[in-house]
């Protein structure tokens, strides 16, 4: 075990996989010698050479198009998009190519070996172009997997699993936690399962679902509710696509209540999908409407960032409303 922050855990996972599989190639804007603007790829070029870790020209559509071809050829690209806010020039390559390659070729070709890493989320005074959480756009894309870690331990295990999974994975890193989250991380190789949620705290009165940096926010709210005698079950969804509907259903059948929290705007956010599925699977078990605590339906603000965020207080209030319904 070693103490690592989230960036170090990601760096460690990349080194582990590059050592294990010589077909892993890491690239993106500034990821070479400099080690990325957040330093997630520090020392990779020194260790593995310029052929396996390099700077790309400044073109997101180029990065992902190149990665798609490299994956189809049989290599294992790990492509970095510097900020999730800047992923959209690559939207066509991801949605129409990465995700559909296997299907359109009848399984002859695929981009299954591709992993796209990108920092997402707010709380860093980044305003509308350095704070977005675009997971829902991609969750509407059959063929992709979407994974979000909440801490360094999860990050290493989930990233290793993503790089080895035979499907393209969009791996979204909560940048607010890059240096803030520190935990014990095994130095050896390990993976955590994709498509499986993780119960962070067990409880009996209400199920709280979140992912990434918002998990600790709902935990804070759960602690406040506990003072009121409310027992919360906190679940980290971990995988947005495919997501663990079974685990959430089991929990809601036990608690009878569900609250979902995410930073992205409410309308069309992934909470909507969870709510629709859970009311279908657990209708007769529900004691209150499913609550959503999300970002507002506005672009991500700067001066009013605090007001916009689905923070612990808004979550706590929603827990109370749901309990008192």
């Amino acid at each position: 075990m070693a103490k690592m922050n989230l960036l170090q855990a990601i760096n460690n996972a990349l080194i582990t996989e590059m050592e294990r599989n010589e077909k892993v190639v890491v690239f993106g804007e500034d990821v070479g010698h400099f080690g990325g603007v957040f330093r997630a790829t520090s020392n990779l070029q020194e260790k593995f050479g310029k052929d396996r870790c390099f700077n790309s020209p400044l073109t997101e559509q180029g990065i992902i198009g190149f990665a798609n071809g490299l994956a189809a050829q049989g290599s294992f690209p790990v492509a970095e998009i510097q900020f999730a806010d800047y992923i959209f020039p690559a939207f066509d390559q991801i949605v129409n190519e990465t995700a559909k390659w296997r299907y359109r070729s009848g399984g002859q070709f695929s981009c299954g070996s591709l992993t796209i890493r990108t920092p997402y989320g707010g709380g860093i005074h980044g305003g509308l172009y350095h704070s977005q959480s675009p997971e829902a756009y991609f969750a509407h894309t059959p063929g992709l997997k979407i994974v979000v870690p909440r801490n360094p331990y999860q990050a290493k295990g989930l990233l290793l699993a993503s790089m080895r999974d035979d499907n393209p994975v969009l791996f979204m890193e909560p940048k607010r936690l890059y240096r803030a989250a520190v935990s014990d991380v095994p130095e050896e190789d390990y993976t955590l399962p994709l498509g499986k949620a993780d119960v962070v705290e067990e409880g009996s009165d209400i199920t709280l679902v979140a992912w990434g940096a918002q998990v600790e926010v709902v935990q804070q709210a759960a602690a406040m509710a506990r003072e009121d005698g409310v027992s919360c079950e906190v679940i980290d969804l971990r995988s947005i696509l495919p997501w663990d509907a079974q685990r959430i259903s089991e929990s809601v059948m036990k608690t009878g209540r569900l609250l979902i929290n995410h930073e992205a705007p409410q309308t069309g956010g992934f909470a909507s999908e969870i709510a629709a599925t859970i009311q279908d699977k657990c209708f007769l078990y529900l004691e209150a409407p499913i609550a959503r605590v999300c970002g507002l339906d506005t672009p991500y603000p700067l001066a009013h960032e605090k007001e916009y965020m689905p923070d612990h207080l808004k979550t706590y209030e929603a827990i109370k409303r749901t309990m008192n319904y």
Binding site: E29, D30, G32, H33, F34, V37, F54, N55, P57, L58
Partner: peptide, 11 residues
């Protein structure tokens, strides 16, 4: 330069 990327790695 584009952040750290020198022109010779850009084009």
């Amino acid at each position: 330069y584009a952040i750290s990327t020198p022109a010779e790695e850009q084009f």
